[in-house]
Amino acid sequence: MTQQAKETFRSRTAGGGTALAAKVRTLGPSMTRSMQRVAEAVASDPAGCARLTVTALAQHTGTSEATVVRTARILGYPGYRDLRLALAAFAAQQEAGAPAAVTADIAVDDPLADVVAKLAHDERQTLADTAAGLDVGQLEAAVAALATARRIDVYGTGASSLVGQDLAQKLLRIGLIAHAHSDPHLAVTNAVQLRQGDVALAITHSGGTVDVIEPLRVAFDQGATTVAITGRPDSAVAQYADHVLTTSTSRESELRPAAMSSRTGQLLVVDCLFVGVAQRTYERAAPALSASYEALAHRHHQPRPTTRP
């Protein structure tokens, strides 16, 4: 095995079975049902699947050899042989300690203390899954584009619009020109004004929100660098994104829809982008942050007029 092959294998096996399980949770909804069966099998029993040939795994999951190979490739491996080697490595890592048990969904009659514990568990899992599945190369490219952008437009609707506003506010505080757009008409109108050297960033967990995809498409056609933060890396929004940053989400339930749980992963990616940009532009960012802190502190300490007698 060449040195490059060794590095590639190490990067794919970093994080062990936890990272693989994170990929399955993130990519599973976009897979066919037969591919989901293969993905779930290798994530739940890496040791057992590592002992199976491609034919045996296909029989075990009630699928075909072609489906097994396609699933391996979607999970980031050139072929089944590479996935099988990784599964063997994951199995060895698991011997050191069993993974943490996953809590049950929140029930209508759960005591509030249980709700807090379950939500905390799901939040931690979402953050861990997002971190494990985040492509650092794509993140670095997005950071580089944002740090040198003439102008930055951020698109999002619903819960994702709140995340977009958070990112725009953070970037404004370090001296960048950034605007968040939740109105689809204004988003498209502004996207038309973008050009090479500008950045357009779309936030959509489903990857299929038309009101977010359309302004990103316009920005893409105008020559701006485009970035998508999404839970579905093979969705419609990705075809207009130069860089795709994948997020994870905790299990959707009746009391906690995906729109709520997806924000946790999105906010982690936003913070990674902001810190990366602040690092690259530190000489400008540090004074800008200090100035904004000072301005806000001064405002907070101003005495307010009293209307009572």
Rank of each mutant, 00 (worst) to 15 (best):
A120G: 13
A141V: 07
H121M: 01
S160H: 04
A128W: 10
L171P: 04
A144E: 12
A113S: 11
D122T: 15
K170R: 14
I174G: 02
A144L: 09
T189P: 00
A141Y: 03
D183H: 00
D129T: 08
G133R: 10
T148C: 07
L176F: 01
N190I: 00
S182H: 13
L176P: 01
G158V: 05
G158W: 09
G137D: 11
T148I: 05
A180T: 07
I152E: 04
I177L: 08
L162V: 04
G137E: 11
G137V: 07
V116E: 10
P111E: 11
V116R: 05
G137R: 11
Q125P: 00
T148R: 14
A149P: 10
A180Y: 02
L112C: 00
P184T: 03
H121G: 01
P184I: 06
Q125D: 09
I152H: 14
K118I: 05
D183V: 01
E140N: 11
V115P: 01
A141K: 12
H181D: 01
D153I: 01
L167T: 06
V116W: 04
V163L: 10
G175I: 08
L139M: 13
V154Y: 09
L112V: 09
A178N: 08
T126F: 13
G137Q: 11
V163W: 02
L119R: 04
L171G: 07
S160T: 09
Q125M: 15
L172M: 12
Q138F: 08
L119E: 03
A187F: 05
G175R: 11
A128Y: 10
L162Y: 10
L172I: 11
V188R: 05
L167A: 07
Q169W: 05
A191E: 01
S160E: 05
S182Q: 13
Q138R: 14
A117H: 07
D110H: 02
Q169A: 15
G164H: 02
A120C: 12
R150D: 14
L171N: 10
I152G: 14
A141M: 07
L171E: 02
T148H: 10
T126N: 14
T157V: 15
A128G: 06
I152P: 06
D109P: 02
V163S: 13
D122C: 06
R173K: 10
K118C: 04
A180P: 03
L176W: 05
D166V: 03
R124Q: 15
A168V: 03
D166A: 12
R124H: 13
V154W: 04
H179A: 08
H181M: 00
V188L: 08
T189G: 03
L171H: 02
T148N: 10
A113W: 00
V143C: 05
A145M: 06
